[in-house]
Design a binder for these strands. Sequence first.
DNA 1: ATTAGCACTCGTTATAATGGAGTGCTAAAA
DNA 2: TTTTAGCACTCCATTATAACGAGTGCTAAT
Lengths: 345, 345
Amino acid sequence: MYYLEIDERKKLILREVVQRFILTGNPVGSKVIAQSGKLHVSPATVRNEMAALEKMGFLKQPHTSAGREPTNIAYRYYVDILLSQKRPSHGDVEAAEQLFAVRNKEIEGMFKEASILLSELTRTAAMVFAPIEITHIVHRIDLVPLDYTHLVVIVITSMGQVGKRMIELDFSAGRDSIQVVSEFLNGEISGTDISGLDKEKLLDQSGFEGETKDLAAVVLEALASCLDVLEERIFVGGTSNIVREMDCEGREWVQRLLEAIEKQDFILALLKDLVQIRRLTVRIGEENEIRELKRCAFVGTSYPVAKGIFGSLGIVGPTSMDYARAIGIVEYIAENLGRILYRVM
Amino acid sequence: MYYLEIDERKKLILREVVQRFILTGNPVGSKVIAQSGKLHVSPATVRNEMAALEKMGFLKQPHTSAGREPTNIAYRYYVDILLSQKRPSHGDVEAAEQLFAVRNKEIEGMFKEASILLSELTRTAAMVFAPIEITHIVHRIDLVPLDYTHLVVIVITSMGQVGKRMIELDFSAGRDSIQVVSEFLNGEISGTDISGLDKEKLLDQSGFEGETKDLAAVVLEALASCLDVLEERIFVGGTSNIVREMDCEGREWVQRLLEAIEKQDFILALLKDLVQIRRLTVRIGEENEIRELKRCAFVGTSYPVAKGIFGSLGIVGPTSMDYARAIGIVEYIAENLGRILYRVM
DNA sequence: ATTAGCACTCGTTATAATGGAGTGCTAAAA
DNA sequence: TTTTAGCACTCCATTATAACGAGTGCTAAT
């Protein structure tokens, strides 16, 4: 790191430039810095320092006779070194309380609300990754007949999660055979792990014949795919903020970003990655692996939902976002979401 | 209606203007119309006709010496009268087949996929309203204990729908009392309508005492709110298309529109309204009640999911969208979604 | 009723001029 | 050696002006 070369005065100037640019979005000149009161030197001195900082790669000029704006390296340095860790403001905390005030809420609703809250407080796009335990111990299986050829298979895990699948039979199944199959499956599968299911063996054990056996086979098939439905989910909120905050970038590019968020696959990878890292992570510009995020900054962290199980959440905003505030809010929400969900999800 | 005054040649010209404007987005002049081959008159004649159409309110000029573009009235007329009902193209149909090819899919996934398909084919924002039958006959109730103070209440309706709620007890509940409550509730409530539940009476009937009674009370409370969770849902797809297609409008305005779609309450009202109307509906510009849609066009229709139960779906795009194509696709998707879901949801 | 012809309008593009914010550099002051 | 006042310079942004051309409305001829 070249960070050693930066003396105190340079730090002061750098912080000031970053903060002002975050605030106004305009390049900042030597004059305003000199008159800001933090520093008691003339604009000329500031200019010299700024030129040095530019040479070091921390500042850049949009054109020769404009003020300076921070490079991504500067943001990195700002986040790593200069940031005076801000806890979320009183107002933010108060706003966040609404999430935790409403109890007895549907679990899914918690994630959704967290994503909305996160996006509203930071005015960015927010995403919450809701993990699922990998082993699914079955609590119960339900078969709901709709008519003679359709029924819904429902699996409830011991964690209270629900997988559901509609199946269409190419034969007709009576209520009684459905009942029989249902009872048999509950007897055999309840309390066991659904992923290690030996369908063939189970079918043999059942002693079912004819239509009932066919039915059981179809249902077992559906059970397996219920697992997939029990996949992790992402809750996204505040994507419209991207249009507002990213007005510096081209329309084309904003559209691509929104599209990527909508598709969710990249975002899912990003958030899953975050679960591994398991600490506050700030990725600025090119540091992002996802192409569509290379002009943005990402702030995220993970939160626990059970022993060894973590979810993650984060926001996507402009590289010139208010990192102090964003970090504070992200950590705060993660902390509280974890606290509420832990051993409850 | 003033429609009577429009002779055949005016119709031809109007249609041509609308179609060309939809295609290119640029005002269209008299010359291109005259040379289009549909009409065998000189530009001057076309100009006279266009001046007349402008006076009637069908055309407008962005400025004195530009070509003409259609007013919303023209779009209305185009949709009502001039549209040569286009069935979806072979390519569109083929693309749509993917939705119906994958069977035995989770029901929710059908809606989601329909919204994605709709948005991709039309390159607009698409929304699918998934209705729920109003009466909820309970098929089964499940209580899943997580630890001593938390449990998940799950209600399965006779239609295979699942409502779920996590509750936190301020006392400790043993597995056995949970078992007892569960069995009692299933005995009493299964097969009945959950909305007309008399909690007090039921509690009295139960003969439960102490902790078990408290538990039953809390669970009954949660059951009621499970109904709310079983609310209608909206599936939205392709919102990023709005950024692409609406580039004529201001950023500010695009942002508001996206926000409105994200919030979903207005959209929900719109789609519910559509269920009442129960036929293809095109709303152009000011015809939309929702403020954020007044610069857009909406194309939607309803689809059946059961006898007397309808869902609805639609798209939001620029007023200069390809209505023929949009209508074709919307109807096609609605038709097929209805066919698949009917008596199965 | 149609159309050729023509003057006219007005947005678009190109070019030049002006102002000003901000810089880099130099030389003097501390 | 560090700081700073002074000044020339750069370059964006704004404004002014002109040329262009697509498209119109109107008139008069067909």
